[in-house]
Amino acid sequence: MSDGAVLAVRDLSTVFPSEAGPVTTVDGVSFSLGAGETLAVVGESGSGKTMTFLSVLRLVPPPGRVTGGEVLLEGADIAALPASEMRWIRGAGIAMVFQDPLTALNPVFTIGDQMLEVIRAHTAMSPRQARALALEVLERVHIPAPAKRIDDYPHQLSGGMRQRVLIAMAIALRPKVLIADEPTTALDVTVQAQILELLAELRSELGMGMVLITHDLGLVARYADRVAVMYAGRVVETSPIAQGFGRSRHPYTRSLFRSIPRLDLPADQPLTVIAGQPPDLARLPAGCAFEPRCFLGNGREDCRSERPALLPTTSDRHLSACPHWRALIDAEAGA
């Protein structure tokens, strides 16, 4: 599966010390990403979806620490690179766009200053060349009148325009992989559509692999080729969108789909509540982390005692960390 992958991650783990003992925020995560492919990573706060990619980039905030795993960028392991080389990887190899475009930009420098800083830190370009490149990428993300906008300060731009600037900075060095972390959560729904269309366009033009971290299942349906669902620091299900979406093989994913109000379902259809609270990573149960909230587990002994592994289900591309996934299909057939 990792053959020909632009990014392959194996068994990545990240641990934070805490008063209650070490907390594993990323727990043996593996995935791979092809060139030109979009992988959606879905999960709730604390599921480890952002921390996984901060770990990939070696940007885990202290006292957190990556404790193990391989990160292969075009086949070369970058997990052990010295810090100086890692700086080059970030930007030219893997770039990341964050949720809040206002805090990600420095308010006292112009857009151009900040773009030139990034470009010149990674290349041997002269200021003039770097500025030309900045203008080119601003144009590419459809910022109107880039020659005028490049000297604006962040507050002079709208939220959607700021996000475009960040995307321009991210693609300036032609990264192999673009990680977009909730890129539109802070934006209005009509602007959200514009930004995601832009990301999809850039992905195919530049042939990047793209990771879309999101909690919005609707965006997954539209923009992703594959999805990985995370819960309590682990990937609990992964499948191609075309075959797997809406035919989930994990009770957590199932519950997520039923708990959201949807325009395409009758308005009065009651929402299924996922019982209980999100997991406390410092006090995870010995067995499956979702068991206390699971409609399927229902006191099964193995769910409580054994941590389930992520294994193939109906196809070797559709993996689930629920050993009882067949019961979901039986329920489907009975319904």
């Binding site: 729904v189 009509t190 959200q192 559509a193 919005d216 299942l217 609707g218 965006l219 997954v220 349906a221 539209r222 969108i241 075309a242 979406f245 809406g246 789909f257 959201i260 949807r262 325009l263 395409d264």
Partner: peptide
């Protein structure tokens, strides 16, 4: 603009 979480419809 609201994304709907169903692949066939959404695409």
């Amino acid at each position: 603009a609201v994304p709907v979480p169903t692949v066939d419809r959404e695409r």
